[in-house]
Design a protein around this nucleic acid. Sequence first.
RNA 1: CGAGGUGUGGCUCAGUUUGGCUAGAGCACCUGGUUUGGGACCAGGGGGUCGCAGGUUCGAAUCCUGUCACCUCGACCA
Length: 478
Amino acid sequence: MADKKMVESITSMDEDFAQWYTDIVKRAELMDYSSVKGCMIFLPAGYALWENIQDRLDKRFKATGVENVYMPLFIPESLLQREKDHVEGFAPEVAWVTEGGGEKLEERMCVRPTSETLFCDLYKNIIHSYRDLPKVFNQWCSVVRWEKTTRPFLRSREFLWQEGHTMHETPEEAEERTVQMLNVYADLLKEDLAIPTIKGRKTEKEKFAGATATYTIEAMMHDGKALQSGTSHNFGDGFAKAFGIEYTGRDNKLHNPFQTSWGLSTRTIGALIMVHGDNDGLVLPPRIAPTQVVIVPIQQRKEGVLDVCRKVAEESLEGIRVKVDDTDRSPGFKFAEQEMRGFPLRIEIGPRDIENGECVVVRRDTHEKKTIRMDEVKTYIPELLDTIQSDMYERAKEHLESSIYDATEYDEFKKLIDEKPGFVRAMWCGEQECEDVIKADTTATSRCMPFENNEPISDKCVCCGKPAKHLVIWGKAY
RNA sequence: CGAGGUGUGGCUCAGUUUGGCUAGAGCACCUGGUUUGGGACCAGGGGGUCGCAGGUUCGAAUCCUGUCACCUCGACCA
């Protein structure tokens, strides 16, 4: 029996975190590899997670006035090249279409790596007056970036995301929108995914191609590595100028509008896995879990057992995403399988329970097991789901906070990066050269200049010793 | 794109060094029965032509040449 368990179990995360991750995405049937190199298949369990994230995020968007649109998949080369930094940033990783209908195209087109240029092309035509502003459009779509190395959910050549693109009358309003959307992302991660993040600004080196400022939420995975989980960019009026977007202002003069863009991708599913998962598999926060409660009948062929299970599902758990597992596997198999899939709660109901008017409730996050009365189910389960949601967030927060270290000397910095999984806070002079040196020495990169808890911890750059300008959070990243 | 590795049923692999009977095992799958509170058991069954192409040979999963794909680690990225 022990041998069989060995055959099917996943690699322990302490032994090999990368392999653990791959084992989980496969065994929990979130995705599958396809015959298209670098592209992945979202299986029902994985896609359902994305649907829930979409739903939750889209509602937040709409509440701030966002309108959804859909733009073309292709971008003509001439359009992509309109903004210099942008082309340079994306050129190495775009896919080109050169033929169509059996004929070579006059002008090749790329498959969108992101759609700033298309939105600018549109906005040029529909923004004429200050009365046309702001424009707050978003699209849910997939984009293509020809990555050399790919990993399920974290980096694939095609990935699903949303990209919001907005135009504003003033730089202040654009800045406000940029920060607002970053906060929306942080709220989604905190409230629904139970993932704490650090909000901050990217350095010049790490910012988006063509942006004046890039903001990020950085999450910490269980192995201490960082995952950029959402970004928001302020473009100033750079693109607007490059694309000739002008409108007549309140002063009857021509102006360029100010632009933002922001995106969150299926990569967040990777974060979900790596923040909450354990050695038994996936652990899903209740709010985002496609199935919140699974009922396992014991001795299900005995008269009445399945009936009671179904009755509990339908009558006592109304409004909760619940499933009765009536497959003919053994209970032990079902327990293990459901733990792998990360369902937050399991209810076991057998003849003994029915006789006693009870059932057994088991938490996925803590493995805690409790017998409750059948008539308590209706109130107890929703409360417990809320408890699990907040406990998961608190545990992740505790992990994040206890894995951030301060360094004022370079030797100390290198030692911490090398030996302690997590982030290191250190002062920085503002020069890219120091970022390059640090990366070469440690493989760590600047994650962000945090908005909060950013009081100077020294007056010298941790790397070169020159006067420091910013407190920066450093870490190894996915 | 640089270094290393691997291609044999759905999965994990054995077999390749030293060419030779009908290509094997475990898991998974299907059927029937017995089971059911932590990955059940018995019996029966289906499925591969050995990544692909060419070559050597009486004979190739095994040797040779070429080619493709994938994986891991680096450099680049949501």
